Computed example of a mutant assay.
Amino acid sequence: MRFSENVCPGASVEHTSKITALLEDARAKGARILGGGEGAHQDGSFLTPRILVNVTREMKIWHTETFAPIALLIPFSTVDEAVALANESTYGLSASVYTINIPLAIEIGRRLESGSVHINSMTIHDEAHMPHGGVKESGWGRFGVPWGFAEFTQLKTITITDTHLAG
């Protein structure tokens, strides 16, 4: 992909530097990086998508919520193993499950520790009428009407007993 002068920044230079360091750590520890290009855009604020294979738990990227166009391909043999791998993360903002078996996808979605699960779709699906938020270290609470109101208000019950009636 060639960038034109009209490309808008995708992130801060600090963020792309953090991601580049994570990629280099992974590469140094045996990961193979597929796709991408020569690194960040000329101004340092845009990363091309990357796919990483041969990723292990010893790599910093395994334990990091990158917010970058990076996919880690981790092999698994069973659905139970796939769910365990996903739930091993300390993060849980959003997940995607791709399959033609919709009942299985729903079962997997129920088991994933994630604020949302999108079947056969990307992980970003924010709409004002839907709750959005993560679990674990991906945040607390939900935004979106009416869930957001509940997150920022305190419901309180106050009762009164009339002592004159009590005798």
Rank of each mutant, 00 (worst) to 15 (best):
R2M: 09
R2A: 09
F3Q: 14
S4D: 10
N6I: 11
N6C: 12
C8I: 08
P9Y: 09
G10C: 10
H15D: 03
T16P: 01
K18I: 00
L23I: 04
E24P: 02
A28Y: 05
G30C: 10
A31L: 03
G35V: 10
G37I: 03
D43R: 13
G44I: 02
P49N: 13
P49C: 12
L52V: 02
V53C: 06
T64P: 00
T64W: 00
T66A: 13
F67T: 00
F67N: 04
I74H: 03
F76T: 12
S77V: 08
S77N: 13
S77K: 15
V79G: 05
D80K: 10
A82S: 13
E88A: 14
L93D: 00
T99Y: 06
N101F: 09
I102M: 14
I106N: 11
R111C: 03
S114I: 00
V117I: 07
H118K: 11
N120M: 11
D126I: 12
A128R: 08
H129A: 14
H132R: 07
G134T: 05
V135L: 08
S138Y: 01
W140D: 09
V145G: 08
W147V: 02
W147A: 08
W147E: 10
E151A: 14
F152K: 12
T153C: 14
Q154V: 11
Q154Y: 09
K156M: 15
T159R: 11
D162I: 00
H164A: 15
A166W: 07
A166K: 12
G167K: 05
G167N: 07
